[in-house]
Simulated assay, not measured.
Amino acid sequence: MTPRPSHPRRLGLTGSIGAGKSTVAGLLRARGLTVLDADAVAREVTHDPAVLAEIGAAFPGVVRGGVLDRAALAGVAFADPARLAVLNAITHPRVRQRMLALEQAAAARGEGWIVQDVPLLFEGGLEAQMDAVLVVDAPLALRLSRVTARSGLSAEEVLARDARQMPADEKRKRATFVLDNSGDLAELERQVDAALRTLGIQPSAFSPQQEESPSNR
Rank of each mutant, 00 (worst) to 15 (best):
D184N: 10
R29G: 07
R94Y: 05
L36Q: 08
A25P: 02
R174A: 12
A77F: 12
P214N: 11
A85V: 00
E103P: 08
A163T: 14
A89V: 13
I17K: 06
A53C: 05
D37Y: 00
T23H: 00
L121S: 05
A128Q: 12
P93D: 06
R29Y: 01
P5T: 13
G152A: 15
L28Y: 08
G32Y: 06
V51K: 11
S154R: 14
A128Y: 02
A74P: 08
D169P: 05
V95A: 05
T148M: 14
T176F: 12
A155Q: 15
Q129L: 12
V192S: 12
S6E: 14
A155V: 06
M99T: 04
K21F: 07
A57H: 15
K173Y: 09
G112M: 01
L159S: 10
A205L: 11
D48V: 08
T34A: 13
D162K: 02
E212I: 12
M99L: 15
V95M: 09
D131Q: 03
T2W: 04
T148R: 11
L68K: 02
R150Q: 01
L196Q: 12
D48P: 14
R96C: 07
V133E: 01
R172K: 15
R9T: 09
V133H: 00
A50I: 09
W113N: 05
G26M: 07
R161S: 08
L68N: 01
L28M: 10
K171H: 08
G15C: 14
D137A: 15
M166N: 12
G26H: 05
L52W: 10
V62P: 14
L33A: 13
F78N: 02
G20S: 04
T23Y: 00
P81F: 00
L134T: 03
R83M: 11
R143W: 11
A30G: 15
L153C: 12
T34G: 09
I114F: 01
A107R: 15
A186E: 14
E170Y: 00
L27G: 00
V133T: 10
I114W: 04
A160T: 12
S213Y: 07
L120T: 06
L121H: 02
